[in-house]
Structures are given as structure tokens and as C-alpha cells.
Amino acid sequence: MVPGCRAAVSDAVTRLKLFVPLLAFAVLAPLLYWGLGRDPGAMPTALKGKPIPAFTLPSLTTPDAQLDQALFAGQVSLLNVWATWCPSCRIEHPYLMHLAEQGVPVFGLNYKDEGEPARRWLKDLGNPYREVIFDASGRLGLDLGVFGAPETYLVDSRGIVRARHVGVLDERVWQKEFAALYQSLQNPEER
């Protein structure tokens, strides 16, 4: 009787072991489901929570003037990376104009571009930027961790990077990624 009982117990233990693969799959399946909703290419900036890197670069509009990171102190602003060789930037441009009209401070980073066509672009299409940093070598872009153009960074009043969007900025992206953060940074005492 006792050996039979022991055999039954050992069988039951073995049976339990057979459930292990099922349990493993039960852990895996929700992960896969979660993965469906995510964009594997979406990339938060490595600079999030860090200050804009130090730079000294000329202004696109007034080439004699030198700009540096102090530009970003004192207001919550956007830093938009653009170039004339980037057709998507042209698509994005009207929305930047719209934001500027709403009073959102937008700074430009003219990335690996040539001065003359870039100035013409601003003249022809309108200039949404309070100031445009002229980064012909792409050095500041590299320090920012820019992939390409267009990209837009949300920078707080102390010059700290808070968010980034890679690709065209439009109303949907603004509402989804920037609007709430922009509001809360504007009114820090309300937080």
C-alpha cells in the first residue's frame, strides 16, 4: 500500500512538472500582446532630463551673432531640427508657423545645411523660429543625438531636455506627446 501511495505522489509531482511549459507560455503571451501596441523604432532621447549640450554656433539669420545654450534659459521652448534637403521638413513647416502664432517659443537648429538656401527657405515659407542655430557641421546635432531631420525637442526654462519627437510634428503628435508636458512646465507651481 505504501509503495503504491508513494508512486501516486511521484506521478502527481511529475504531472505538475508537465504544466511548466504551459506556464512559461502563459507568461510569454501577454508580453507578445503588449508588444503589438508598441513602436519598436520609437526612441526616447538619451538627453531626457539633461541640459542641452554646450555649444557656440552662429545664428543662421545674423551670421555674425554667436549663440550658445543660454538661449534656452527663461522659457519653455521647442527646438526643431530642420534642413532644406529634408522634404518632410517642408510638410512640417506650416504647423511650426501655427505653433509660433500661438505663442509657443520655437528655436531652430539648421542641421548640416547650407546658409543661403536655408535663409531663402525662411524668407519664402515664413520664419517660425525665434532664433535659428546654424549647425553646418552637424556637431551640435551629434551631441544632441539627432538621427536626422525633422526632430523636435521640448526644453524647459532651465534648458533641460524633457521630450523629443522624431519625424514630422503635427497637431496629433503635439497633443499626444507635447501639449500636456508643455502646459505643466509652463506652470510649475501648479504641479
Partner: peptide, 28 residues
């Protein structure tokens, strides 16, 4: 994502079902 979701449901049915069957009926 639609295709992904469809395949995932199918995957869950086939793999989950067969592993359950294995757990219940596998030889001990």
C-alpha cells in the same frame, strides 16, 4: 497590428491548447 493580433490569437490557441493537452495527458 491587426495581422499581428490575429496571428497572436491563433498562436495562443495552438500553442496554449497543445501545451495544456500535454500537461493534462502527457505520460508520467
Amino acid at each position: 497590428p491587426t495581422r499581428g493580433a490575429f496571428i497572436l490569437i491563433f498562436l495562443a490557441m495552438v500553442v496554449g491548447g497543445s501545451l495544456l493537452l500535454f500537461a493534462l495527458r502527457g505520460p508520467v
